[in-house]
Design a protein around this nucleic acid. Structure first.
Lengths: 325, 325
DNA sequence: CATGCTAACTGAAGCGCTTCAGAGCGGTCG
DNA sequence: CGACCGCTCTGAAGCGCTTCAGTTAGCATG
């Protein structure tokens, strides 16, 4: 019996040794993790649900930081079951088969089949950023306040013509200036909130919606925004990657940053400080976000009830990409 | 009995419906994936072992492409159990507890505790890139030939002073010009092979070893290389990210690429073609690599024996970062 | 009307583990 | 010297499922 492997204190060293020797001789490779899980009724991993395929998801440098911190905080005995999305989220079937006893949703759209399955299975859920879901634990950041901070900053610098580079409002891959209705019905809370933050300070700024948060999407959007009349003297971007794309666009058009164009990002990823010029951006603590998500997951596993959502602060980090008009 | 869920053909629609109704009424949430796995003796996921923590691992854009393709090729019923490394590989304990019946090693160093555990558990293994391990299936690329291609290209352009920007030879985080012995004893096959490819064409080029494949590491190394006398007129980089860092270094120093400095990368990630100037690089098909790894994993699961390693070709993609001396 | 055959359903065994009640067995204390 | 205790060790139950042999019923066939 495999008390030998798990509780060496329950038997004498000699018996233990004998058991282990014979087991080895018999070609026994140690306790089977699946059977152990059945007996102990613990799933053994945390299902991490992503909104998009891996290559797209990881083009967002924020993701790997959050996941890294999440993985670090989880115990050794609990790995991450990565479930990439196909259109808006992981396949329902994958969730149904997952050997997990807690799920983490990373920035999923409001309606998402995978979440229905999580609910059906009765898995405890931690959501990061979005959507807001009753009955689940949640960690997010002060998106709206952060966006308002960015907007106030550029307005304070005297900018009147300010453009907004937004990421996806819907999961349909559409890009371009969105209609008011499209903005209002967005399935992504983060996009809605940041937009609301910008708009609370600005008055009906020109907006370009990108299909993802790739740098090139930002470049494309910035090209369009910078063709508007009057041409914006400042661009507010919903992520640093987008801002970096805008930086490239400015370069394409021979505009100097910050002399001719002021740029503000969001997230404060490592790339923001390495940029040339270093990016003014709205900082959120990604390491904290991952850590708290893991802590919430662990506490749910321990039977805790999902408290109110943990909202992390956002702050403005002023660097060299912003200047008075 | 839950034939109702799995084989609807074995019972009448009426009975099936009745069972499902009562089950729902009883608050039954459907078959338990863990118990099912025990009974069917299938682990239910693929353990993916990485050499470093997530944030570092995903700073290599190649990784997400390979993993993406891998995940795509796997069946729906098999998710990826992501096991990040701590120092050179995942913790042995994590491997021991993994609900997996096949493991994939992504670019791990030669000696790695996690691999010992895989062996002990008798899990079938497919290794991507490295290390070479008897008894495992393997997919890699023609690293040496590709590196030789890059070196021949710059030599053919008339460059005589060529520097090499290498990534880690050991997992100790050391950077700087490595000793010959350090090169010879490298724990990383890929680094060894690419180095061998360069050296087969060049004769004792100056080398800078970076601790990782971050862009900034490339920048730092390029700064050092470009301070050597005679100053290299071309730099061979073991990854595109490193080359992009070198590009930045050239910019720092007021050197034009390719007029003053020729740059060659490796991998051909998306970033290489978006760079300014677009990077000449050694192309490997990352999507193929992930797909083949998944196919190998599936065939091992079906009981196939691990054939000889599948080596994908490398080709030189000439873009605008190289020019005659 | 007995027989054979299929379709529909039931029950029990077994996957490999954990857990726990209980059996043996010296040694200690009253 | 017997009751009692703590330490080892053993055996059986049970986790929730799948699988398969076996049962029953219904129906057509000879």
């Amino acid at each position: 019996m495999s008390n030998a492997y798990n509780r060496p204190d329950q038997l004498s060293a000699s018996l233990r040794e004998r058991i282990i020797m014979t087991a080895a001789a018999l070609g026994y490779a140690g306790p089977d993790p699946v059977a152990r899980s059945l007996a102990t009724r613990s799933g053994g991993s945390v299902a991490v649900m992503l909104g998009s395929r891996l290559s797209a998801a990881f083009s967002d440098p924020a993701l790997s930081i959050v996941l890294d911190s999440l993985a670090d905080t989880l115990d050794v005995e609990r790995s991450m079951l990565l479930m990439p999305g196909v259109e808006g989220g992981p396949r329902r079937e994958s969730v149904a088969r997952a050997h997990a006893d807690v799920a983490v949703a990373y920035s999923l759209p409001d309606d998402c089949a995978a979440l229905v399955e999580v609910e059906r299975r009765g898995l405890p859920l931690v959501v990061i950023d979005q959507p807001v879901l009753p009955g689940s634990a949640m960690v997010d950041v002060a998106d709206r306040a952060g966006a308002a901070l960015a907007a106030s900053h550029v307005v304070g610098l005297g900018h009147r013509d300010v453009g907004v580079l937004a990421f996806a409002l819907h999961a349909d891959g559409v890009s371009g200036p969105p209609s008011a209705e499209r903005v209002a019905t967005s399935r992504y809370r983060v996009t809605r909130e940041r937009m609301a933050g910008y708009v609370s300070v600005l008055d009906a700024p020109p907006v370009w919606e990108t299909p993802g948060c790739l740098r090139d999407h930002g470049r494309e959007g910035a090209h369009w925004l910078l063709r508007q009349v009057p041409r914006p003297t400042a661009l507010l971007c919903m992520s640093d990657e987008l801002a970096l794309g805008a930086l490239r666009a400015a370069h394409d058009l021979g505009l100097r940053v910050p002399e001719d164009l002021t740029l503000v990002g969001f997230d404060d990823t490592p790339a923001a400080q390495w940029a040339d010029p270093p990016l003014t951006t709205v900082r959120q603590d990604l390491v904290d976000k991952g850590r708290i998500a893991a802590e919430l997951a662990i506490s749910l596993l321990d039977g805790a009830r999902p408290g109110p959502s943990r909202t992390l602060p956002t702050t403005l980090v002023e660097r060299a990409s912003t200047a008075p008009r």
